[in-house]
């Protein structure tokens, strides 16, 4: 279907494309091992976050949590804010985003263009400064509504009801699903759906490993695991550093013509790891992974060109996923 009543109805239904050049070679007669990319950058605002944004707003409207003209307050490092800004505009809400100041300039410009207001929390102050900023805002505006993507079941449900069924329809022979681990919504929702339908499927997480500056914690007890996270849905979890993420992001565009953001490079890195294991073990594999967004928003980092060392340095201290 290629005609929709509004942009909101055009969310999801993204293409799944084969990666014949990046898929590992197998010996003649050996079972095929193939990589497939789910192009989530083809969503209305250019990222996978359009799905949860739409589901969270709809759920809040249906439950009465959101009423026309309300202000939504959401802490976000980028894509969710952009997606929410579009949904809020079309559904008649005001959006205020709290975000760290060390995100790319394009994200800020996009948010403002879509009509969101932004409150920055200083990167240098670490998480404690962000906590202080957020507490202050919440105290000043008790009527503002939070959707809270890290603990909102509608985030995971968006993927259970859309991403999962789309993948099964397009790739019934799927053996592995690989996605990024942030709010955990994509992996929890898609993973639960696929585990119910596909025997033996492996759900694999790729977690970005940022530079030291980004963590900004003072002790272990300040750590956080999103409320949505359920480890039993996952089979494996990889930590992918900046260098590997950049290398794979460049390979995506150089080898397969897919221009993606760095989190997608991290996801490809984990997908290639499981694909190569399947080749080594002589097992058939159809590995589907998520292209979370396009590369446009990250061009200003300069990390698409120059040496890998330069790129690593350029992304140090940035939230690249």
């Amino acid at each position: 279907m290629a005609r929709y009543e509004s942009l909101l109805d055009a969310c999801g239904g993204t293409p799944l494309v084969g990666l014949p050049r990046l898929s590992p070679a197998v010996d003649e007669g050996a079972p095929p091992v193939r990589l497939w990319a789910k192009l989530e950058d083809r969503n209305p605002t250019g990222s996978v976050k359009d799905r949860p944004a739409l589901f969270m707003v709809r759920e809040a409207e249906e439950s009465g949590h959101l009423r026309p003209g309300d202000t939504i307050l959401e802490p976000t490092s980028g894509n969710t804010g952009i997606a929410l800004a579009m949904v809020a505009k079309l559904r008649g809400y005001r959006l205020v985003c709290v975000m760290p100041e060390n995100v790319s300039a394009e994200r800020v410009q996009l948010l403002r263009m879509y009509g969101a207001e932004i409150i920055f929390s200083p990167a240098a102050g670490g998480s404690n400064q962000a906590v202080a900023t957020a507490k202050q805002i919440a105290a000043e505006h008790p009527d503002w509504k939070m959707l809270f993507q890290y603990g909102n079941p509608a985030n995971a449900r968006a993927h259970y009801e859309t991403t999962g069924p789309e993948l099964l329809h397009d790739l019934p022979t799927i053996t592995h699903f690989v996605a990024g681990l942030g709010t955990t919504g994509t992996l929890m929702g898609t993973g639960r759906f696929l585990k119910e339908k596909v025997e033996g499927i492996q759900i694999v997480a790729a977690e970005p490993r940022y530079g030291e500056l980004v963590y900004g914690l003072r002790n272990i007890d300040e750590g956080y695991v999103p409320e949505l996270y359920d480890a039993t849905v996952l089979d494996r979890r990889f930590s992918v550093g900046t260098r590997d993420a950049v290398l794979r992001t460049r390979q995506l565009v150089e080898v397969e013509g897919i221009f993606a953001g760095f989190s997608s490079g991290a996801i490809l890195h984990a997908a290639l790891a499981v694909a190569h294991e399947a080749v080594r073990d002589g097992r058939r594999a159809d590995v589907a992974f998520v292209i979370a967004d396009g590369g446009w928003k990250y061009l200003s980092t300069g990390a698409y060109g120059g040496t890998l060392n330069d790129a690593e340095e350029a992304l140090e201290g940035q939230l690249w996923a």
Partner: peptide, 28 residues
């Protein structure tokens, strides 16, 4: 590594807004 997801600063802000999660004391 310490457990963080989705960007340390973003979730710290979220946790503060929600409130119920016990905030770690500012200790060494």
């Amino acid at each position: 590594l310490p457990a963080v997801a989705g960007g340390a600063l973003g979730f710290a802000a979220a946790a503060a807004l929600l409130g119920p999660r016990p905030t770690a004391p500012a200790t060494t």
